[in-house]
């Protein structure tokens, strides 16, 4: 479980960075959200996978899933949703104002 999680996180970050380095702004946004998903997975992993029992205190063997990282990730996903939505609207405006969505269309601010 842990190994597959690590591999998934690595892949997500790798693909995300690759997309960040493209010259297309839509790909930039997709890359950003992939990286933030990787961060969410790290947060899930930080709780460890100690058991499959739900975190309800009942008599019985102790190891149960840690509920806190899941609550945190839920919050982080919601925030990521809001941020992606904002970025997509921003990209839409940029492409309307500049007539394109490539990095080379954005060269106004320098120095």
């Amino acid at each position: 479980m842990t190994l597959s999680l690590i591999l998934t996180i690595g892949t997500l970050v790798g693909v995300g960075v690759f997309l960040l380095l493209r010259r297309n702004l839509l790909k930039l946004i997709i890359g950003l959200s992939l990286i933030s998903h990787a961060a969410n997975l790290i947060l899930v992993g930080s709780g460890g996978f100690l058991g499959r029992r739900p975190p309800i205190i009942l008599p019985g063997p102790l190891p149960y899933a840690d509920p806190l990282p899941q609550a945190l990730v839920l919050t982080a996903i919601v925030i990521g949703f809001g941020v992606s939505a904002f970025l997509l609207v921003l990209l839409y405006w940029i492409s309307r104002v500049r007539g394109g969505a490539a990095v080379s269309d954005l060269m106004e601010l320098r120095g």
Partner: peptide, 24 residues
Amino acid sequence: LEATLKYATLNLVGSAVFLLAVGA
């Protein structure tokens, strides 16, 4: 819009690192 894109992009990567640090 251009300034916002730069600002948002950099700070989003920052947010991902924030989450990573919180997880750790």
